[in-house]
Design a binder for these strands. Structure first.
Length: 447
RNA sequence: GGACAGGUGGCCGAGUGGCUUAAGGCGCACGCCUGGAAAGCGUGUGGUGGGGCAACUCACUCGCGGGUUCGAAUCCCGCCCUGUCCGCCA
């Protein structure tokens, strides 16, 4: 049996179980077998300075862990044999006092060694959980400046005479930023009238397209999730300050439907025949945007709560690359149907999200603010999330289970799409033409 | 939130301190039988980690985590989840 080895399969980030439950952890083999490729991966992300000491520490911890495991298991085997003998003697009416004392001694040693083991594994797990995924070979090394536009579609509308979406929206009475701020705070938006109906229209158009034409299973999932789910998709432990959390329980508001949907099959083993498969979900998304104070604060560009339709795909390692392309096309098609000019950007390693191995951003032209707005982010996580969430598949009956690959992409995020629609389809009189595909959903041709 | 009752291997289901290193059944895989199939018979049947790194072997795994004990699926404590009833409620 040949185990598929993608570049991230190498990154044996293997902590799934530490997340919430029982078994100590899987195998930090990365620190045994592929330290060099791990260092190289961090270098490509421009993160080597940060992670080099942790990698060194991980190597030492892995050695320590294994030696303690051997010591513990040796004593456990001895204890098991000892207990068997105690049982035998008692049954035979022979004295067993000294064996019971020996067993007590072994028990104390086991307890001490297990303490050491737990400490080493906790530190090791912490390091592994905090280490980003290894990007794939075709991802350019470097930071944002190395991002690459790989394709584009449509003619960006010239900016001349186009108002920004917040002016259009408020003038049409479909957007109420003032009252959003009043009832919740800045970064919260109220849509009214046709604006509210536009949100509903986008939700239906997006989901209908993915379900009817792209073969996704429609899901409707909780927007409040537990810690294990947040670790599974790698929002935690590293980005806790970006998340909205409930005060009285260890629960979080989701920053994306990726979290509940990807975690659907956490701790399960799937049939190979069920792969690839896709799930789509509409949810609101909640982001504190803690590190983004002051950036893009106007209008709909960056808000704390927004709506999004998300696509999630499961597949085998072999299917990963083609599934990434497929997923990205599913998002692009929506923009083409909406008639919004966009470009696909392959993010450089340093700009690629923590858990992603390759990420395409889809950016839509907004002539009113004269910016390319990120309306979708389509990523493959290779087996990174699957390891954390312990989602596996069995290639064939009798085979050992392997980790699946997970992918996800927005299809699409509403506020920036709405901004682009308002600006791109703006008419001289301030009204906005509704694209054909939305008319059946909206019931009007002009906003 | 309160009171009961439960959580055992892919599924059902025994099992209240040591020949259970989880009985039995179903399912599944392979084999026998058959012209072929069913039935029948036989064999096997998970996951994780450690060592060899192949055969094999050791440890862990009966919701999760602690505790008692030479020894825990079995006893004790805490937590989670499920079911039923009550309360509350969109």
């Amino acid at each position: 049996m040949t185990k598929p080895r993608t570049s991230s399969g190498l990154l044996a980030l293997c902590f799934s179980s530490l997340i919430a439950h029982r078994s100590p952890m899987h195998h930090p083999r990365i620190f045994r077998d592929n330290v060099d490729s791990l260092r190289d991966a961090m270098r490509r992300r421009r993160k080597l300075d940060e992670f080099a000491p942790l990698i060194d520490r991980g190597v030492a911890l892995d050695l320590e862990r294994r030696s303690v495991i051997q010591a513990v298991e040796e004593r456990k085997a001895a204890r098991n044999a000892n207990s068997q003998e105690v049982a035998r003697r008692k049954k035979a009416g022979e004295p067993a006092a000294e064996l019971m004392a020996a067993g007590r001694q072994l028990g104390e040693e086991i307890q001490r060694l297990e303490g050491e083991l737990a400490a080493a594994e906790a530190e090791l797990n912490g390091i592994l959980l905090g280490m980003p995924n290894v990007t794939l070979a075709d991802v350019p090394a470097g930071g944002e400046e190395a991002n690459t536009v790989v394709r584009s579609w449509g003619m960006p509308r010239p900016a001349a005479g186009v108002k920004p979406h917040w002016e259009i929206g408020e003038a049409l009475g479909i957007l109420d930023l003032q009252r959003g701020a009043k009832i919740s705070g800045s970064g919260f938006v109220v849509f009214r009238g046709l604006g509210a109906r536009l949100t509903r229209a986008l939700m239906n158009f997006f989901i209908d397209t993915h379900v009817r034409e792209h073969g996704y299973e429609e899901t409707w999932v909780p927007v409040v999730v537990n810690r294990a789910s947040m670790i599974g998709t790698s929002q935690l432990p590293k980005f806790e300050e970006d998340m909205y959390a409930l005060r009285d329980e260890d629960l979080f508001l989701i920053p994306t439907a990726e979290v509940p949907v990807t975690n659907l099959y956490r701790d399960e083993i799937l049939d190979a025949g069920s792969l690839p498969r896709g799930f789509v979900a509409y949810t609101p998304c909640f982001r504190r945007e803690a590190g983004a104070a002051g950036k893009d604060t106007r209008g709909l560009l960056r808000v704390h709560e927004f709506d999004k339709v998300e696509m999630v795909r499961y597949c085998t390692p072999e299917q990963g690359d083609e599934e990434h392309e497929r997923l990205t096309r599913h998002a692009e098609i929506l923009l083409e149907r909406l008639g919004l000019p966009y470009r696909r950007v392959l993010l450089a390693a340093g700009d690629t999200g923590f858990g992603a191995a390759r990420c395409y951003d889809l950016e839509c032209w907004a002539p009113g603010v004269e910016k390319w707005l990120e309306v979708s982010s389509c990523s493959t996580f290779t087996d990174f999330q699957a390891r954390r969430a312990n989602i596996r598949y069995r290639p064939a009956t009798g085979d050992k289970p392997l980790f699946i690959h997970t992918l996800n992409g927005s299809g699409l995020a509403f506020p920036r799409v709405i901004a682009c629609l308002l600006e791109h389809y703006q008419q001289p009189d301030g009204h906005v033409t509704v694209p054909e595909v939305l008319r059946p959903y909206l019931g009007v041709e002009v906003l």
